[in-house]
Design a protein around this nucleic acid. Structure first.
Lengths: 202, 202, 202, 202
DNA sequence: GATGAATGAGGATTCATTCAT
DNA sequence: TATGAATGAATCCTCATTCAT
């Protein structure tokens, strides 16, 4: 009645491996993670990893994409379908989202991109196209809509949407680097939103 | 004979190696730089590198510290000795400094810290103590002085100094990751300063 | 329904696999052929290959034997049953056979034996017993018969039968190694036969 | 007074490694030899092997060339400088050389070329240019000279020089494959030379 | 019988570090 | 000091073989 030595679970394996890989990459960075460790953490053999991902690099890309793919759309949908007025939306769902990012896998992916980006330009492009460009476009659209509705001044359009995101980025980096040092990252983002709204509200 | 015309002085060696190392780390990241390459770029033998730095890791730390040490003090001095009024100082030397950072070696060091920080906590501490803490303290001090002088409102003290730096951080990261994609990073920082000054000026 | 039109019969499987294996071994040599490729080329699963051949080595042996088995007998039969006189037989069927060898699977097998022989002594023995020994014996027999019939001089018996085969071997090797460089291998074999016949004819 | 752990012998290393590699390749063939074994046999570390030869393949090529380079010239020189008459030269130094080949490193190289040639076309070209082409040219030249001197008939020129070499090739292959089975390879080559000389002498 | 997912030992290659010179 | 030859542990990747289905 010996336990079977392994299971055949073709469907689940790639995701399992990708998840394990994410957690190892998160801990050690790209170069320092051994494919062996990924396999171990996924509970599979090293060989199987190579069955699904031809190289460590390909695995890395799959990890980044898998994290990205799973997260982007929600907010963008929310922007388009919300029935809140602009300010309420910003202070509500949008702020909520921004607060969640520094502690989320997205932050890890950002770390990996900062560290490995120069060696993986296609990954950077992928991330730009699927996250950054879409995010910025959504903010821009959102402001335009606010202007049309008379909730924002016309000059709001001149503001760079990046300004909304700047404290979030600072918070991400702070948490990544200074894990120990507390920082009221939520307060930071709230203040910035107050600052910006004070400027652009009618 | 054949005396080399310019005999390198021993005292410069560590700095030369450190400089070479910085440029290789900047290009390839920690894991991907080979000590051999550093030595080659410094124009010395690999063995000599190990004479001055016991391990690659120690070399790495020396690099980070060397960059940091050379850059921090100038601005802090300026804060203390300037004769400009607060707004003029912010719009002048301070903005100038912030604009310079994303293209400076500091940006590279930040990349290295983001990537390697978790494996080098003492480096992170060093950086925090010598750059971040002092920088934030200086900003805080500066605001206090502005308040005392009646240039800033008392509420200005409630503002987190991090907000001044957020767009700079975003700019740094953007330039590190999206080398290709242009972004008006200067405009970003100017806008933020306008935003903040509008709030705190008397 | 969807019954496959041509159901492969089980009995053919080993031969199909063996054929596929031959073609892969021929292309890549023993070490560089992957069992996976053999299976793919045979249109079966890797597992099935292992059902018929316990190891890659066993498959290899089966390949060599299968090629050998299919080719030896014809010529030997011809020697025994021909009604041609000795010279006519040599200049006719025998020369024809020798000309055909360098382009035939036998040449490939020879390459494999040269490369892998030392690691597969039993294969070498098999090849020797079933091809070489029988071939040489046949030539010897043939010469004896020629002597008895008065077609060859008695001294012909002193000649080593290998001499008949030497240019064939050179041709085989040449074609295996110098695929690009043309060589009149047929002319070579004809000349040698002229040479030998001139010596041994009565 | 501990023994030094290693010696610095830059000059000798490549040749030592190449020699060791030859002997391992000879035993096991290209694919089956481990760089580790080569290093061990050379008495150096694996790493050192890679200092001198960037890849296993490069090492392989170096081995082939090193064997070839050391052997070709002697005979060719002899052809040009001999004072023997043609027949004496053939029966003497030339036959001697041919007899020596099947037991020499050249035979091993031939085995390696037969086995690995298709994967190393440049090696094949190298061997062709440096050994085969030059060897055949020398034989051709030699026959021409014999004709001019009146030692050979004019028709000798029509003979393919390959015929001189055919029994040598058979002997090489035989000894490589059928190590156990004795064959009077010397007698084979002598007979062939008798055969040929009988045809071409005046 | 068939399949192909899963295993894991094995081998090429790299590179931080040491040490003879 | 200074060099760079030499070491060997570490790691990616392959592929023969097994075995759950």
């Amino acid at each position: 009645m010996a336990e079977p030595r392994f299971q055949r679970r073709k469907e689940d394996r790639p995701q399992e491996i990708t998840d394990a890989a994410f957690s190892v990459f998160a801990e050690k960075g790209y170069a320092a993670t051994r494919v062996d460790d990924v396999a171990k953490r996924a509970g599979v053999s090293k060989g199987l990893t190579y069955l699904y991902f031809k190289t460590k690099e390909e695995l890395f890309k799959a990890v980044v994409k898998s994290v990205v793919v799973r997260r982007v759309d929600a907010l963008l949908d929310a922007v388009e379908t919300t029935e809140l007025d602009s300010e309420a939306f910003i202070r509500g769902p949008m702020l909520e989202f921004m607060k969640s990012v520094p502690g989320s896998p997205i932050a890890i992916v950002i770390r990996l991109l900062i560290a490995e980006g120069p060696r993986h330009p296609d990954l950077v492009d992928y991330y730009y196209d699927n996250v950054v460009a879409r995010g910025l476009a959504a903010i821009r659209l959102f402001i335009e809509r606010g202007v049309e509705r008379g909730e924002f001044r016309r000059e709001a359009l001149n503001h760079q949407p990046h300004l909304f995101l700047a404290p979030m980025m600072l918070s991400i980096i702070w948490r990544l680097v200074f894990t120990e040092k507390p920082l009221d990252t939520d307060g930071l983002m709230e203040s910035q939103i107050n600052l910006l709204l004070a400027q652009i509200k009618t």
